[in-house]
Design a protein around this nucleic acid. Structure first.
Length: 271
DNA sequence: CTAAGGACCTGTCGGC
DNA sequence: TGCCGACAGGTCCTTA
């Protein structure tokens, strides 16, 4: 499901229900997520207080009294807070039951998601190797210029590489490149600083706008409270291959780049 | 080191 | 109506 705006919206949605609450019980119904959840998982969490609910890239981090929980939603994951325990549905894999009876439930039919207990989230290899947050100042044109210096990969691939910058998924990579007027296939190292400046600004703008709207670009997105969000964000190119460009009217072209749908305007984003 | 492709898994949709 | 392949918000891991 989620791109970064959805993850941030989810984090904000669950935060008030978890912070300063104690975990009473953890039920793991399906251990086979991206990484198998070990048998010890439940007992590592139970009876611990949740101190803080954080986010790094697309990982949601629960800071406990001792250790942290990393949660990734993969492609189809969803976290919801139930007012009380409800009978689980088919893809409800993990329940974290709180001291007040509310339940944080992980639902993920494709099981690309992950739930990991670790001593210190920021020392974990999955987190440690991540690039800067896209909305922070450290993500800027000078930074990109230096990391892309000798990268031949297509700029779209680089923009979606979490070692370069976190949180820019396929939808927003398409949108940001369109707004910046940059062809997705341009070799990363060929972009001039001026173009990188535009790309950085465009990336920040689309992500911010989506977060402001509640992070709901997605077909089957539900907020933590179960509210459905759908097409609150208007997308300019993603999902519009074969339709006219909203800027110039030329037909948008679609192709696969790194096995992902890529849509661009051949006039507005010249090679 | 870089770059490209496969792998993980289920559900849905379009074409024949 | 039914079957089969392609594709879907991600990203780690293997191979070249």
């Amino acid at each position: 499901m989620p791109e970064l705006p959805e993850v941030e919206t989810t984090r904000r949605g669950i935060e008030p229900y978890l912070t300063h609450h104690r975990i009473k019980q953890v039920i793991v119904r399906h251990h086979g997520l991206r990484w198998a959840i070990p048998a010890s998982f439940a007992s590592l969490l139970e009876n611990q207080l949740v101190r803080q609910v954080d986010r790094r890239g697309k990982y949601i981090i629960l800071h406990l009294e001792h250790g942290d929980v990393l949660i990734h939603l993969g492609m189809s994951g969803r976290l919801g807070v139930l007012p009380s325990f409800q009978p689980p549905q088919k893809h409800d894999h993990v329940d974290i039951i709180l001291d007040d009876g509310k339940v944080l439930r992980l639902t993920d039919y494709r099981r690309f998601g992950a739930m990991i207990w670790t001593e210190d989230a920021y020392q974990h290899p999955l987190i440690r190797s991540l690039g800067p947050e896209p909305l922070e100042r450290s993500f800027n044109a000078n930074y990109l210029l230096s990391v892309l210096e000798n990268k031949n990969v297509a700029i779209k691939i680089a923009l979606m590489d979490s070692k370069i910058v976190v949180g820019v998924g396929n939808i927003y990579a398409n949108e940001a490149l369109f707004i910046a007027g940059i062809h997705p296939k341009r070799p990363a190292k060929s972009l001039a600083k001026e173009e990188l400046t535009k790309l950085v600004a465009a990336s920040k703008a689309v992500l911010k706008a989506a977060i402001k709207k509640g992070g709901t670009t997605l077909r089957d997105y539900y907020s933590a409270s179960g509210e459905k969000g759908f097409f609150l964000i208007s997308l300019k190119v993603y999902g519009r291959g074969g339709k006219p460009c909203l800027t110039c009217g030329h037909i948008l072209e679609e192709f696969r780049l790194g096995q992902r749908a890529t849509v661009y305007c051949p006039i507005c984003q010249p090679k």
